[in-house]
Amino acid sequence: MFDFAWPWMFTSLVLPWLFRRFLPPATAINQGILFAPFISAYQEKPATALNRFQLHSLRNWGVFVCWILLVIAAARPQWLGKETELPETGRNLILAVDVSGSMEIADMGDGQPNRMEVVKQVAGDFIQRREGDRISLILFGSEAYLQTPLTFDHTTVANLLQDTVIGIAGRETAIGDAIGMAIKHLKHLQHASEDAVLVLLTDGANNAGHVQPRKAAELAAQQGLRIYTIGVGGAPREIQSFLGMRMINPASDLDEETLRMIADLTGGRYFRATDRDTLQEIYNQLDKLEPTLKNSRVVRPTTELFIWPLGLGLMISFLLALRWWRTD
């Protein structure tokens, strides 16, 4: 669709007529500045009245066309593409996922893969459901890394989560550094702390990093960042041994007390996932606790076309000036 951004500029088309109508004509200067009697020998024959009329008419029409083209360029002609609906973020959602060595334990149900694979399946579906939110991904082990900044491109975030390798950030667990990384990322974005949520998933205790979880949680609370913590790991169960039945706890390294403390300090909530179904239910609850806001706005891609009439007008004006100089 063709349109003009500033159609009111067309009112300036009458300016030359107004100037000619109401301003006095310029006084012609007929007296030469330098008298050189010998120059007449080199002058061409004077133009006939018809030639002068044709030249004057050509100049007038050329100037008139140039003025029209410049006014068209000033009105900003544009080509508008098809309407596109863009989502407007309701909140900023950061996912912090533990990729330490213990995530390779396969205890999330009979026949289920390791903890990391279960998280990839369930969290990947959760990411795709968060239409309208900007999502960021943080991976942490011995160190915390920002894998993706906040973005509407949920497919890319989900794909990067699927490509995550256990131990890529180290074999230990730096919970405090992961929270600190989320705070640092939000601090660099304008109004990012408004409706900001961090979902932190881990299967262990803080045993690495530079920031203690309590200190990081206090800083998050000051920034208005709500943190939902998820502890993953199989439930205690009995197994057969040489000495008979005995109870084992696959998630004995999980520091649930610290995860509850983090959630309480920031206004979030702590969840415990022992298998794929409970993890799926946790993410379903998060959808209810932090529902997506599906606001959107309609935009049209715009291509500016003013350069074409502007370039044509300048080219004609250059040719007129050249013609004028050669004849005069």
Rank of each mutant, 00 (worst) to 15 (best):
G244Y: 10
I282D: 02
Q43M: 15
V299N: 05
R130Q: 08
G234A: 06
M103F: 09
V118R: 00
D133A: 02
A73I: 02
F140T: 14
L189M: 13
K120Y: 13
S100T: 14
D98H: 12
V119G: 04
R20F: 07
T292A: 07
A174P: 10
L93I: 12
W67K: 09
V99L: 10
V298W: 00
P37V: 10
G90V: 11
S252N: 13
N159V: 04
A41V: 06
N284H: 08
F242E: 07
P37R: 15
D255V: 03
T11E: 00
N159T: 09
E83R: 09
V65S: 02
T27S: 11
P236R: 00
R21C: 07
F126K: 01
A96E: 06
F152A: 07
R326K: 11
Q240E: 15
A251E: 07
R134V: 02
Q162I: 07
I183T: 14
A36F: 04
P46C: 03
Q222D: 12
T156V: 13
A106W: 14
L314G: 10
S241G: 13
R134G: 01
D98V: 05
R21I: 05
K215I: 12
T258V: 14
I29L: 06
W67F: 15
T11F: 06
D125R: 10
K184A: 14
L293D: 12
Q285Y: 04
P309D: 03
E143K: 13
R129A: 15
I175Q: 01
A217Y: 15
P46S: 04
L254P: 00
L219Y: 02
L186D: 05
P24F: 11
E44L: 14
W61P: 03
I72Y: 02
G267Q: 12
F4Q: 08
W308K: 09
G32N: 07
M1A: 01
W61I: 13
S57F: 12
R272N: 07
S102F: 07
F4E: 10
G32Q: 08
A273G: 15
V157L: 07
V232R: 10
E304K: 08
G224D: 06
A106M: 04
V199Q: 00
L319H: 03
L322G: 11
E44V: 06
Y228P: 01
T303S: 04
A36W: 02
N284D: 05
F140R: 11
N30Q: 12
V299H: 13
G170T: 14
T27I: 10
R226T: 12
Y270W: 12
L86F: 10
L254N: 01
I68N: 03
W79Y: 03
E218R: 08
L254G: 01
G231P: 06
Y283Q: 02
W17M: 09
G167C: 12
D177G: 13
Y270G: 13
T164V: 14
V299M: 14
F306H: 03
K184N: 06
I135Q: 01
M247W: 06
P7W: 10
